[in-house]
């Protein structure tokens, strides 16, 4: 198959001070409550996320329990707040390694070229033949369910996108005048790559990182829902939706609010991604 990474070749420009795009601003505003909840769930949550309260089972949203309670009497709002930390951790850990490893590998093979580039290219082609979710599920199945193994599985598969993006950029930037000038000045290849080319070539990967974080949350929640990701009683949004699936008709709030949190988190990251893409795109 042929996948062409979008390239943004061109002379790196001095970044002028410009107004922040509305999508980026909205995304950043929406991000604030998620960051707060992830940093200090204990301060914000009114109840424990895991303590059972059999005197308050399946209660509809009220002043006492704004998001209602589940079939064990656990406060859904508190679980959603504590779940933020787990799902934000998923967003970071499913993307950090693929971003770092994929980008460095892309920079290296794009810069060196030749056989290294060809070998990694073949491996990358191969990874994309497997449906992403199927390969991740298969690896998790072999290693055993749980968050750590999920991170390993996603890392084994997810680096390819970053490799493609950065490699394409580095190949394009290698030919530019500023890169050649740096070489003519006698800088070492390592320095030319890391100090001159990479800072310019990394932009699309950073933009993609944001989109990938929203995909990471969706993936983590999907695996949680299927029972392969976070394990109960961990308050993870996907796990919570699964917990409430038998009460969809009688107690919609058990899975309704975690589902809403998931969607909102996804929208937030993709707004930031879109906004960054707009803000960082070189003007032609």
């Amino acid at each position: 198959m042929t996948t062409t990474a979008p390239t943004t070749t061109g002379v790196p420009r001095a970044r002028s001070r410009r107004r922040v795009k509305p999508t980026l601003a909205l995304g950043l505003v929406l991000l604030v409550p998620f960051v707060l909840a992830a940093l200090a769930p204990r301060l914000l949550a009114p109840y424990s996320p895991t303590d059972f309260d059999y005197s308050a089972i399946l209660q509809a949203p009220s002043a006492k329990h704004p998001f209602g309670t589940d079939n064990f009497g656990r406060d859904v709002l508190s679980r959603v707040i504590h779940g933020t930390r787990v799902d934000m951790q998923i967003a970071v850990f499913t993307t950090l390694f693929p971003f770092v490893f994929g980008s460095l590998l892309g920079a290296l093979t794009g810069f060196v070229g030749r056989w290294a580039d060809a070998v990694v290219g073949r491996v990358a082609d191969l990874v994309v033949v497997f449906p992403f979710l199927v390969l991740v599920i298969a690896i998790v199945a072999v290693l055993g369910p749980g968050l750590t193994n999920m991170y390993i599985a996603v890392s084994a598969v997810g680096w390819v996108a970053y490799w493609r993006l950065v490699r394409g950029e580095v190949v394009a930037h290698k030919q530019t005048e500023y890169a050649q000038a740096a070489r003519v000045l006698g800088f070492s290849p390592t320095r030319v790559l890391l100090r001159h080319i990479l800072p310019n070539a990394i932009t699309p990967a950073i933009v993609y990182l944001m989109t990938d974080m929203s995909l990471g949350i969706l993936l983590g929640a999907s695996l949680g829902y299927l029972g392969l990701g976070a394990q109960p009683p961990t308050p993870e949004w996907g796990v919570m939706v699964a917990d409430g699936k038998n009460f969809m008709v009688t107690a919609w709030w058990i899975s309704g609010f975690p589902g809403l949190a998931l969607t909102l988190a996804g929208v937030t990251f993709s707004l930031i991604g879109d906004g960054l893409a707009d803000a960082l795109r070189p003007r032609s």
Partner: peptide
């Protein structure tokens, strides 16, 4: 795009 498939399905 941000709606989880399992959630829409439910």
């Amino acid at each position: 795009l941000s709606l989880p498939v399992f959630y829409v399905a439910l």
